[in-house]
Design a protein around this nucleic acid. Structure first.
Length: 895
DNA sequence: CAGCAGGGGGCGC
DNA sequence: CGCCCCCTGCTGC
């Protein structure tokens, strides 16, 4: 599909006309198609008009934002949202914010109304350049496009045709000077009527496409992830207080109230929306199940209230911080907690964190979040909040009293009054824990391999299949090594031992089991048995191999069939319980502790920290399972005995410190592997928007080549198997939280390090440091080429210069790969000779013979990419001192 | 085309 | 955290 795009002019700022034209409705599929074409011709930083389509791309080096306008309908890349009038101010802010980012990030703007001041904002976007491009409607290409009738372009045709009729009077955009006399569709000065007509056109287009979508049953936009409860309204939309249908063909539909949104979803997409948390469910069953969570939670709270337990939201927090808890987590963990989510009980110390939480996991908008200033409770439902506030006001004193008694300990048995549940708890805390766990519709299925909790049975089956080798459906195969097992317990046992290194499991084989054995509905076990909802992991194995083996078997059976013991799930009464996940590294069973806090049958950690805490692995839409991956939790790994590389993975995510070989060789080898290993599709290190990630069919682990259906599974797999962390923006994996944080700055545009001299900002301190050296002549260390007197600040550049300018061939002394032994190089002429017969350079001269460092007393040698200490001559002897003491630029006769 | 400089990821301490 | 190494885009010649 081709679009002819012609460059017309280049301007520095958006014109007011362009800003005005950011009024819109949207049509996502069409926009995507257009964008695909646009991108081929519009590299960056341009606003283009393509036959009435305006494409805005603002950024530095790569497109960061694109808006497509078709007549008066504007489309925004990566979203279904409309950039309309008041949204432009937000657009402006977003673009400004992203102006510093070189990454490509999708931005979603909610529709609203534009004001003159917002126009000014729009125009004030700095750093943007505009280029107008247009496609003549009479152009054969355009005609062909319009006539193609292919899916959305059929709609484009209709829209363009309508726009042409409307605008054929001659009100044509005046952007293109040299082409302004040519017919240009759909880009006229906007009037009320034309705007309405455009809206009507868009509505008709939308209607057709929705009908088509429903006919073709390709409503995959409502994905399974939506069924799983993932909010389908993204952050920007929510922050703007809008409800926009995220269906691929429904971007035009926007709702100011959740009721309207729910009605639309039900009537148009036959989907169900939870009014409380704006989650979308495709099946009524899932929706009903989900709604039970809310109703049961309320019921539980009401019963607790009847039992004079107080609304747990009342006294948890208080103005002074935590005096009590609603769960059995530690007092320490609650200390300082100021805000709490009324839906899932997550606690945060910072207001921003709780807002982030609500938006991310409950589909809330800033406007829809209701806050009780008395107790710090946040709720979505205003009516509920009103009720709560009354209670909170009226019972604050009681709450305080209870807080004190709770803090002091128990005061007698408490009986659960939930239906037939007559369980007695020794304390209020226990009872609350019990109610929250047993009488609030928590996920029923717990994957014993990765500990994921899943509500839906089919989803659980699907999830568990991800632990098998892709493509295999019949046999029980380990998803890590492909080894077949004849029983579920053996498979689980094996997979747990296999996690991390694909080591062969020697677990005993036993009887067959049907796949259904994978599913163990917690509720089937009986409400009285709380242990079934508890998360129980095996203890670390002792040193005895036989005992270890037996213990693993026992633990696995316990994992699979649930711990029938007496203390599971209850040992965490006063402290976060430790979940010990068994990993096997090179045959050595390793226990890695993951800190969890019991939270209603799920696990949650870092309760007091906002989502920005990078040690928290966030599963989108799965806020309850957060693994603490702080390095401390992996310390034990470093204590492992050296692992036989022959039996380990080619590229194991183990700590490099435990590896064999010289550090440099190890680092080089890993870098080599890094470069060899297939990178994500953003192989050019472009940052993929999350929307793109989520829209992909699967995620393939680049470490073991396993494909996952959704991001959650992929994240789970990477975390549990490779102990890496996953970027929630682009799904790229990292070995450390630091690297992840550093990487994610590229997505967020955060550049906290600013040069005081030139004002340039950087995402990393080391980059700022490197940059600062440009401002300090005294600190600059240069490599001087002895052959041409050229200087370089980086060794890589100097070597490149050697190769390119002087045809110097660089070999390693051992003939090994250049990349692997980059630091130990010597220069040879192109013929590989080592004598002086070559005309240009002394073939025996090493790199540092060819280049001499200069600088402030030669002491400063840590300029980025300068590595004189690592540079050796052909004999392997370090001549760093020589280099350091080199005088100024070598004379030409040295050559 | 070559040099410069920023971005990104990993390693070692 | 500092550094190393690589990649890549930009820019001037």
């Amino acid at each position: 599909m081709a679009l002819e795009v012609r460059l017309l002019e280049k301007v520095d700022k958006p014109t007011e006309k362009m800003s005005e034209d950011l009024k819109c409705l949207i049509q996502d599929e069409l926009a995507k198609s257009v964008l695909t074409c646009c991108k081929k011709f519009i590299p960056t930083r341009y606003e283009a008009e393509i036959d009435g389509i305006v494409c805005v791309s603002l950024g530095k080096q790569k497109p960061v934002d694109i808006v497509v306008k078709i007549h008066n309908k504007t489309f925004h890349e990566g979203s279904n949202a409309v950039v309309s009038q008041s949204g432009v101010s937000n657009l402006s802010n977003l673009l400004n914010a992203k102006g510093n980012s070189s990454g490509s990030t999708s931005v979603t703007i909610a529709p609203s109304t534009l004001t003159s001041s917002e126009l000014a904002n729009m125009k004030s976007i700095s750093g943007s350049k505009l280029v107008q491009v247009k496609l003549n409607a009479q152009d054969p290409v355009a005609k062909e496009l319009a006539a193609s009738g292919k899916c959305s372009f059929g709609a484009l045709k209709a829209a363009l045709a309508a726009g042409k009729d409307k605008n054929s009077e001659g009100k044509i955009s005046n952007y293109g000077n040299e082409m302004k006399n040519e017919p240009l569709l759909g880009f006229s000065d906007e009037t009320e009527s034309s705007s309405m007509d455009a809206n009507n056109i868009a509505s008709q287009v939308l209607k057709k496409m929705v009908e088509k979508s429903l006919k073709q049953d390709d409503a995959q936009a409502i994905t399974e992830s939506s069924d799983l409860g993932m909010p389908i309204i993204n952050e920007q939309l929510k922050s703007l207080g809008q409800y926009v249908c995220n269906h691929a063909n429904c971007g035009i539909l926007q709702f100011r109230t959740v009721d309207g949104y729910c009605a639309h979803m039900k009537s148009t997409h036959m989907s169900y929306v939870c009014k409380f948390c704006v989650r979308v469910f495709k099946s009524s069953y899932n929706y009903t199940s989900h709604m039970k969570l809310h109703s049961r939670l309320e019921e539980s709270l009401a019963k607790a209230k009847d039992m004079k337990l107080n609304c747990p939201t009342i006294k948890t927090l208080g103005s002074t911080g935590a005096t009590s808890t609603t769960t059995s987590t530690t007092k320490q963990s609650q200390a300082g907690v100021k805000y709490r989510c009324g839906i899932c009980d997550k606690k945060c110390n910072f207001k921003g964190s709780i807002y982030y939480h609500f938006k991310k996991y409950h589909g809330a908008t800033s406007a829809s979040i209701n806050y009780c200033g008395k107790c710090g409770l946040y709720l979505l439902d205003k009516a509920q909040m009103n009720i709560h506030r009354k209670s909170c006001e009226g019972e604050a004193n009681l709450g305080e009293a209870y807080s004190e008694t709770e803090a002091m300990g128990d005061e007698g048995p408490y009986t659960c009054s939930h239906q037939n549940c007559k369980i007695e708890c020794a304390s209020i805390l226990e009872l609350r824990e019990h109610i929250f766990k047993k009488h609030t519709n928590m996920p029923r299925y717990n994957c014993k391999v990765c500990n994921k909790y899943i509500e839906d049975e089919n989803e659980f089956k699907s999830h568990f299949n991800t632990h098998r080798i892709k493509g295999q459906t019949g046999a029980l195969e380990c998803c890590f090594c492909g080894q077949s097992k004849d029983s579920i317990p053996n498979l689980i046992l094996h997979q747990q031992s296999c996690m991390g290194n694909c080591a062969k499991s020697d677990s005993p084989e036993s009887g067959n089991a049907a796949n259904d054995e994978l599913i163990e509905p917690l509720e089937d076990i009986g409400d009285e048995d709380m242990s079934q909802t508890a998360i129980v992991y095996p203890e670390p194995c002792d040193d005895d191999p036989a005992a270890k083996k037996q213990k693993m078997e026992d633990d696995t059976m316990e994992l699979f069939y649930g711990n029938q013991g007496e203390n599971s799930g209850e040992e965490n009464e006063d402290s976060p319980f430790q979940i010990q996940s068994v990993f096997s590294l090179g045959g050595n069973v390793q226990a890695t502790n993951l800190d969890f806090q019991s939270k209603g049958g799920r696990a949650q950690t870092n309760m007091n920290e906002g989502p920005s805490n990078a040690s928290m692995i966030v599963f989108p839409g799965q806020d309850m399972i957060n693994y603490d991956l702080s390095l401390d939790n992996f310390e034990q790994e470093d204590e492992q005995e050296p692992i036989d590389d022959d039996t380990s993975l080619t590229y194991s995510p183990r700590s490099s410190r435990s590896r064999k070989g010289s550090p440099k060789a190890k680092g080089a080898a890993k870098r080599k592997l890094r470069d060899i290993l297939p990178r994500p599709k953003n192989s050019k290190r472009e940052i993929q928007p999350l929307d793109d990630i989520e829209s992909k069919a699967s995620y393939t682990c680049d470490l073991c080549d396993i494909s996952m259906k959704n991001f959650q599974d992929f994240n789970c797999h990477v975390v549990m198997t490779h102990r890496k962390v996953v970027c929630k923006f682009c799904a790229r994996t990292f070995a450390s939280q630091r690297n992840l944080r550093r990487h994610e700055r590229g997505h967020t545009g955060e550049k906290p390090y600013k040069c005081k001299i030139c004002g340039k900002s950087f995402t990393r301190d080391d980059k700022l440091k490197r940059h600062l050296q440009q401002h300090d002549d005294n600190k600059i260390v240069n490599y001087h080429c002895k052959y041409c007197d050229q200087t370089f600040s980086r060794v890589t550049d100097s070597l490149k210069h050697l190769q390119m300018a002087h045809k110097t061939k660089i070999n390693t002394p051992n003939g090994a790969n250049f990349e692997e032994h980059f630091k130990t190089i010597e220069c040879m002429d192109v013929n590989g000779t080592t004598g002086e017969k070559d005309i240009v350079e002394d073939p025996n001269v090493s790199k540092d013979d060819s280049f001499a460092m200069e600088g402030d007393d030669g002491a400063k040698k840590d300029v980025d990419d300068t590595n004189s200490a690592d540079v050796t001559n052909g004999t392997g002897a370090t001549n760093e001192a020589d280099v350091m003491n080199q005088d100024e630029t070598p004379k030409q006769e040295d050559v």
